[in-house]
Design a binder for these strands. Sequence first.
DNA 1: CGTCAGCAGTTGAACACTCAACCAATCAAG
DNA 2: CTTGATTGGTTGAGTGTTCAACTGCTGACG
Lengths: 167, 167
Amino acid sequence: MTSTGTGTRWLTAGQQRVWRTFLLGSTRLLDRLERELRERHGLSLPEYEILVRLSESAGRQLRMAELAASVSHSRSRVTHTVTRLEAAGLVRRTVCPTDRRGVVAELTDEGYIRLVEAAPTHVDGVRGHLVDLVDADDFEAVGRVFAAAAQQLDPGCAAALPRITRE
Amino acid sequence: MTSTGTGTRWLTAGQQRVWRTFLLGSTRLLDRLERELRERHGLSLPEYEILVRLSESAGRQLRMAELAASVSHSRSRVTHTVTRLEAAGLVRRTVCPTDRRGVVAELTDEGYIRLVEAAPTHVDGVRGHLVDLVDADDFEAVGRVFAAAAQQLDPGCAAALPRITRE
DNA sequence: CGTCAGCAGTTGAACACTCAACCAATCAAG
DNA sequence: CTTGATTGGTTGAGTGTTCAACTGCTGACG
């Protein structure tokens, strides 16, 4: 696709190169991280992310909706993911005491252990395949760029966004 | 996950923030681009990408393996995607004349038309949800970062990588 | 309080992706 | 030539994701 008579503002050659490089690189990266987690710990990346959020919450538990918002997945998707994790004994469901519609997902001890085992694999991957490869300032720029996108797209509200301010 | 006694080099708080912002932002972004393409043109993002590669190739055709490499998807995945596109009449398969094992996928006229229709939607999305939101230098940095990752991860070879050289 | 709109979460069917097994053509070696 | 290893691509089963329909609870308003 290059310029035609229509009103569309196409990407410049440079922008297009960046965009495609991003698509390619992130595809490969996510693919690899997923593969490493799955082979060594039997977890998918989304599953891992869920466990992380739970582990960081007070009481290691979170309402389904908050969980969904924090990873920006659909509720339905989180339901399915949690169902799998529950079947694996890594998470437990409870009815929310303050709202009987609600469900809170809680990390089990076994889930916590699995997470602790898996974390080094994941972190090593993120470092080895990304962070340690690049200039620190460039990496910071990535943060600013995707913060902007995340915020502009925010499905519902910007709540879940880790604040990126220059302190 | 924060520092423990083990040898793992954890991410700094800042690095972690960037990494999570990237995950969140790219999830939302890809999600949105996919949704826009699908609603308005009945195409998924991977399907769209395939059509783009074909449209840019000599004769609007490409061997399956090259197609797979160019988008960094598994061969199997490309087989399935092309099967769908073929069923939709957007792509046609032919046996490769020079290697009877080979299959070349060719963009049909209808496929080309659909692509031309869809392209503005996609480009507007990439601009509106990303490029136009951010500092040009930051965006360039994104290119460098993911080029590094893509190259380090390259499944097979770096061939498909759009060259990012400062001219 | 009773009704009703809207929210929390689940369900199941349709669809996409992965993985390993597979077939067929090629190529290199004897 | 024949054999065997390799490459190009497909297949189908298993798994994950999406989408729309659905249940049950809550909370606002009359």
